[in-house]
Structures are given as C-alpha cells and as structure tokens.
C-alpha cells in the first residue's frame, strides 16, 4: 500500500452479550481512495462502520485519524473531525429544498445584527449549494422544489453532496445504489468518484460485487468480525472476494494489497 492510512482501526472488539460482532477487526482507508468494505451478513460491517462514525463505541481497540489516536464519542464528535455517514435512508427532509437540506443544522446566518437575531442567509445558502452541486456534477431538475419531488438518484446525490460539503476527511456510504436503476446508479458512482477526487476517503459498504470491482480502488473483506483479506481492485475478482467472504481462506488473506 502506497498512501498512509487516513483513518485506521486496530484490533477493534465489540461484544453484544455472547455475540462477538467484532473480534479484533482491523481496517484502514487512505485519503483520496474509494475503499469498499465487504463481507457476508453478520460479518460485522455495520458494527464497524457505526464505531468508526461515532454511533457506537468499541470494547477494545484503537482508532487513529491521520496517525493520531481519537475517541469517537458521538456522531457529532466524528462530524467535527471531518467524518460523515450517508445513511441508507438518506436522512433528508422531504419537504425542504435541496439547498436547505445541504445546510440542515448548519444554516448560514446573515451577517451582523440580523445573524445574531437568528436570521438565515437564504441567498448565500442557495449560492453555495449551487456551487457544490456544480462542482460535483450533480444536476437537479430544480434546486428549489422539495426533495420529495426528486428521483431516487437525485436524492442520493443530494445526500452525498451534503456529506461531502461538511466532511473533509472520511465519508461512509451504506449501499448508496441499492434502490437505483442503471442510469442513476452510474451517475451516483460518478459522484462518488468526484468526492474521492477531492481527496476525501470514501468507504463504500456494498453487497454488489461487480459494482464494488467497478468503482473501488481497494477492497477490505470482513469475516466473523475480523479482516480476512485486502485487495487492490485490479487483482480482485468476484470469485476471490466471495472466497474470502465465505471461507476467509489463507490464500486470499495472504494476498498483498
């Protein structure tokens, strides 16, 4: 591996009663790469992502951000450190416009006294949202209509654009194309590449192996709560990924990444 890891997890353990969801899991992602995190159901992907995005805390193990140990006590702490998550249900307000969703909870305020009184600066938010969408190549039918009138792909794009607006380091994306058609999936994958090209570390959680191979730069495989394999995308294939996911075979695990 050439680039030093931006976010790294070492020996993460997390137990729920007698279940070892994570049993000494390692993970790393570098700036400016798309790293797919794959594994069978129950391999511990979602627990690991929750821990790395501050939504859950590990029993053991350490998390390093840019080489320094960090404690991700809450999603808010993670967000302050530049880590965001695009949830599968997107967490958008359907009645609000795309620009309002981009600034949800982080509204731009009017300068001076009006801002102190709590007045928001709608035109500044609209302008910056338009810039953000243009930069990322997101084309919306209209920037003013409510989210609920947009297509699934456009909603996904708004959710990703919002994450990229506020997280400058790591973005986790949970099945970002699960509900989308072919054309929309292509657009969303392009958007994910755009986000990576900004130098953000993108962690993609997906069950869609061909898609993982298409978009990811690197792939890490979890099995039974541990990392069992790491691949560079060029040397991975669906067969090898499935073999690692199901058997965690030594052959797969030894493969240099």
């Amino acid at each position: 591996m050439t680039a030093p890891p931006l976010l790294e997890a070492r020996g993460i353990r997390r137990r729920f009663g007698h279940v070892h969801a994570l049993d000494g899991a390692d993970f790393s992602v570098a700036a400016g790469e798309i790293c797919a995190l794959v594994g069978d159901n129950g391999a511990g992907k979602s627990t690991l992502v929750k821990i790395l995005s501050g939504a859950d805390r590990p029993d053991e193990g350490e998390i390093l951000l840019a080489g320094e140990k960090v404690r991700l006590e809450s999603p808010a702490v993670a967000q302050r450190l530049g880590i965001a998550t695009v949830y599968q249900d997107l967490a958008l307000a359907p009645e609000l416009a795309p620009f309002e969703n981009l600034f949800l909870g982080r509204e731009a305020m009017r300068p001076g006294l009006l801002g102190w009184l709590g007045f928001v600066d709608r035109s500044a938010m609209q302008r910056r949202a338009a810039e953000q969408f243009a930069d990322l190549g997101v084309r919306l039918r209209s920037a003013r209509v409510p989210i609920s009138s947009l297509s699934g792909g456009q909603r996904q794009s708004v959710a990703i654009a919002r994450a990229a607006m506020w997280a400058n380091r790591v973005i986790f994306m949970d099945e970002p194309t699960a509900a989308l058609g072919v054309v929309q999936t292509g657009r969303v994958l392009n958007l994910i590449r755009q986000v990576r090209d900004r130098g953000i570390a993108v962690v993609l959680i997906s069950h869609n192996m061909p898609q993982v191979l298409e978009v990811a730069d690197r792939i890490e495989v979890l099995r039974l709560g541990r990392r069992v394999a790491r691949f560079a995308a060029a040397e991975a294939s669906v067969e090898r990924l499935v073999a690692a996911m199901t058997s965690g075979s030594a052959e797969a695990a030894r493969t240099p990444a």
Binding site: A91, L96, E100
Partner: peptide, 21 residues
C-alpha cells in the same frame, strides 16, 4: 430565522433533523 427552518425540518423528518445536529 434559523428557528423557523428547524420547525420545518423537525416536522418534515424528525430523524433527519436529529442526525443533522
């Protein structure tokens, strides 16, 4: 105002509002 925006946000999707901080 920001308070007003939050009123709409809470009514539109309470969970989204919470996750947005």
């Amino acid at each position: 105002t920001r308070f007003g925006v939050h009123v709409f946000a809470v009514g539109s999707n309470e969970e989204a509002a919470r996750r947005s901080g």
